[in-house]
């Protein structure tokens, strides 16, 4: 009876101690740790387990724990302070593919076969070796390929297309409740939300989620999915109105016989066309 009470007390004490020690050792994700710190964690776990069931002396256990907790912390500190120590402790990343060619010696030095490399590349969506310009194995073992420039996903910049800058949308309604803080950070007030909801004909209680995008348009998702909501189409309509006016002006220019009026109409029609080109990325996206 006395022994089981002892084990209980020890276990509780060690639980708190190990939890604090692991927190002290850093916040890195388990999948990102180096093999050596993985060993460190295992030793701490085993020593703590043996101590809590009385298999080893409490004092001996503490000495072992102290070393295995304090050394990783000290090494981490050193590797932050010094580049040389960082490479010594964590190792250096290995270049596995350079200029589209596999570096066989480096592959051997990280103990990888060609199949391992291909499997890792496939997991990064690089199925074709010919598409990879450069690949590097990070110190934690993940392989990151850099694709050849003609195999990379196309960006608007590649296509020479101007896109409107868009900031992150703000969530202002969640579960039927208005969120005051994001609303005020947008420079809007509850009255604005009330008028917008009135315009769409829904009550706040029926809104599951409401977001405002950077141009100030409100998007809503309702609890009652049977209700069809008019999604914001104001920008498209604005663009269409400009387009129609531009077409009107071109027609006027053709119909009139007064040369001065003809010049004025075609001049303004051209200006509207320029305006349409300038507004397109902002209104249609």
């Amino acid at each position: 009876m006395q022994e089981s009470a002892q084990i209980l007390l020890k276990s509780i004490f060690l639980f708190i101690l190990v939890w604090a020690a692991v927190r002290l050792m850093g916040k890195r994700n388990m999948s990102q740790i180096s093999p050596f710190s993985f060993i460190g964690y295992i030793v701490i776990a085993i020593v703590a387990a043996l101590m809590s069931i009385n298999l080893i002396n409490l004092i001996y256990g503490f000495i072992a724990l102290l070393v295995w907790v304090s050394f990783p912390i000290a090494l981490d500190y050193l590797s932050i302070k010094s580049k040389v120590m960082h490479e010594l402790i964590n190792g250096k990343e290995a270049v596995l593919i350079k200029h589209g060619k596999i570096m066989e010696e480096n592959l051997l030095s990280v103990r990888m076969t060609g199949e391992d490399l291909l499997a890792q590349l496939r997991s990064k969506n690089a199925f074709n070796m010919a598409d990879v310009e450069f690949a590097v194995m990070e110190t934690n073992g993940t392989i990151n390929p850099y694709l050849k420039s003609d195999k990379k996903p196309v960006t608007p910049h590649d296509l020479g297309i101007k896109v409107a800058p868009q900031a992150e949308p703000q969530t202002i309604v969640l579960d039927g409740n208005m969120l005051e803080e994001p609303l005020t950070s947008l420079g809007l007030n509850p009255q604005w939300l009330t008028t917008e909801l009135d315009k769409m004909g829904v009550s706040l209680e029926n809104v599951f989620l409401g977001q405002v995008d950077s141009s100030g348009d409100l998007y809503l998702d309702l609890f009652d999915d049977a209700i069809e909501l008019p999604q914001p189409k104001v920008k498209e309509m604005l663009y269409a109105a400009f387009e129609k006016s531009q077409a009107d002006l071109t027609t006027f220019a053709q119909q009139t016989e007064d040369p001065e009026a003809k010049a004025m109409y075609s001049n303004n029609s051209r200006r509207l066309e320029d305006l349409l080109n300038k507004l397109r990325p902002y209104l249609l996206h």
Binding site: P165, S214, G216, K278
Partner: peptide, 9 residues
């Protein structure tokens, strides 16, 4: 609108 560039356009 919250974006200055969009506003100026």
């Amino acid at each position: 609108t919250r974006d200055d560039e969009t506003r100026s356009v």
